[in-house]
Amino acid sequence: MRAASSIAGSLFRAVRIQVLLPIAVWVTLAAIPWVGVEPNLVRLLFVTFIWTITGIAWNLVGGFAGQVSFGFAVFYGLGAYAAAILINEGVHPYLAFGAAGLVASFASLIVGVPTFRLRGPYFAIATIGVSETVRVIMTNLSVTGGASGYRIVEKRAFNQAEHFYSALVLLTVSFLLSVWIARSKFGLALVAIRDDEPAAADVGVNALTNKLAVHGVAAALAGMAGGVYARYAAFIHPQGVFAFNTSVYILLIPVIGGLGTLFGPVLGGVIFGIVEEQLVATFPEAHLLIYGALLILIVLLEPGGIIGIARKVRLPRRLRSAT
């Protein structure tokens, strides 16, 4: 009796932290544009949402399937350009976001098809090659203004709340999608591939199609995030959206928070979104140096990121099961 009730109690606590806390945070966030917060804070939250979405997307490929990509800026940037061009052509922005996701997803095949058939470091290196090549091409492409960038002209009034909500909705969808993947057979297959690809293949997991699928989904999320960002920024250029730094940031977010966990990229995204602004302002030269050092420290000392520390500290016991 006693045991049963304590199990029920701990289950309830686990449910409380896993479900009620995120819902409370979400409701608070959703209410923010209503209570008249200053626009700069709304902008900061918007940017944080965008980073978190890309971090969730990277975590699907890097954290769940164990495939390290250094080229997520490609999907982010292609999505941004696709959405920008379509919006300028008069397509409804929300349709344009969807198209941005499709374009990015299609682009993910270019890296995935040649490299996912092989085990080893091929994929990771090819992603560096693709991001370099795409940036060079976009810098020289005259249709989109080349290096001088591309402007988005929307024939309606700027509504910050609408941008905020489109980012929040996309973030919610991404997070729920990652929860669904983590609990599905698909997610199990990805983790099996990460942990031991030959063994996974032996029990009938098709590594190629699973890796291609998760890469495509992640690319679509990153592409849509790029599209939402492009519409907000109203101006994009290759050295911004396609920058190598963008790929670094996207990779860093789930690593900081905790690779392969559900809440890791969210925690990482929130921390990154807030810290990045301060860092760039205070150390414009050295902020990448700090990120590099952080990456080394995390890999050597605590590969589990913040979630890993939380699990070790044992204090928030409920958080341990929450991941």
């Binding site: 390290v68 990771a124 990448l288 140096l289 590099g292 952080l294 990456l295 080394i296 590969p303």
Partner: peptide, 23 residues
């Protein structure tokens, strides 16, 4: 096999070297 940790570590070292040089 090349591990996730080794890729991320060497990448971090690269970032540090590159940005030290910028400084």
């Amino acid at each position: 096999q090349p591990t996730l940790a080794s890729l991320l570590l060497m990448f971090g070292i690269w970032l540090v070297l590159q940005n030290l040089a910028y400084l």
